[in-house]
Amino acid sequence: MSEVFTVAVLVAVVASAIRLAVPLLLASLGETFGQRSGVLNLGVDGIMLLGAFTGYYAVLKTGNVWVGLLAGLVIGLFLGLASAVIAVTLKAEQGISGIGIYLFGLGMSDLLFQKLVGTPIPIDTFPQVDVPILSSIPYIGEMFFQHSMVIYLAFAAVPLAMFVINRTTFGMNIRAVGEYPEAADTLGVSVAGVRYATQLIGGSLAGGAGAVLAISLGIFQQNLTNGAGFIAIALVYFGAWRPMGVMAGALLFGFINALVLELKTLEIIPRDLSNLAAMAPAIITILVLAFAAGRFKAPAALTKPFTRGK
């Protein structure tokens, strides 16, 4: 095959990368809020799975994809609250409690699916929305402007997150609580309150990310996310706790996955080596980090519960 990098292939890969990136992006953005305030939630994947099931089930029952998305966001909100109780109030070790949340979500979503649905029934998916004018630009339109509404919304959330974190009082409190909780507390900022808020944001975005995944695929299945939540956490580190960086990471991850897939379809990657190719996203993430991460520092209070007077 000689026509490896035809424009059409590139266009298809970019469009596919964007689709693959969106659930990661939403979940990572949510996790960014949490980590900037000093809370690591390793249970993102579990929340995504329950969000995915809830979103799927809501669409199945109502036929309305937006109700499904809302349902995912709401269940995520509740799980975010639970995460906050565990991590903030009970001051549990965050690296481990998250694994519990993950396992709970993994098992519970599958259990609910088997009991309430059983055999997979397809649901409606988000309709494609072509952006007027822009979508008719050759190539560019197909790559960027022929997606479903949630994809545009997800990317619109990036500048919004930047604005909230960098320009609002709430954002300032988040950063303060994540870096110097003692100082923030002295200044009258409720450390627990801010952390509860970021966990609620993070939980609902993770739940929403799961719902987006399920409703985009039009189906639910056991372990639908296949570990996407863990990758989303990795992307927060990758993106150096900044929404733009997180977005770049999600897109890069999506792009490499889409590219490997396309190269397999075109039979450029020999089938015997396809497993080695599938390692690429993980290895590239590590390498990029090894060269870049030293320049950025994690929020100083990350994973540290706060106790007044300590």
Binding site: R19, L217, N226, K264
Partner: peptide, 25 residues
């Protein structure tokens, strides 16, 4: 007859992108 083995029994999202890629081909 392009064949795309996605190297997973469980990754639904990747299976769906594989289908897109095949349709693209």
């Amino acid at each position: 007859v392009p064949v795309n083995y996605i190297d997973s029994f469980s990754d639904v999202a990747l299976a769906s992108e594989a289908a897109s890629s095949l349709i693209g081909a």
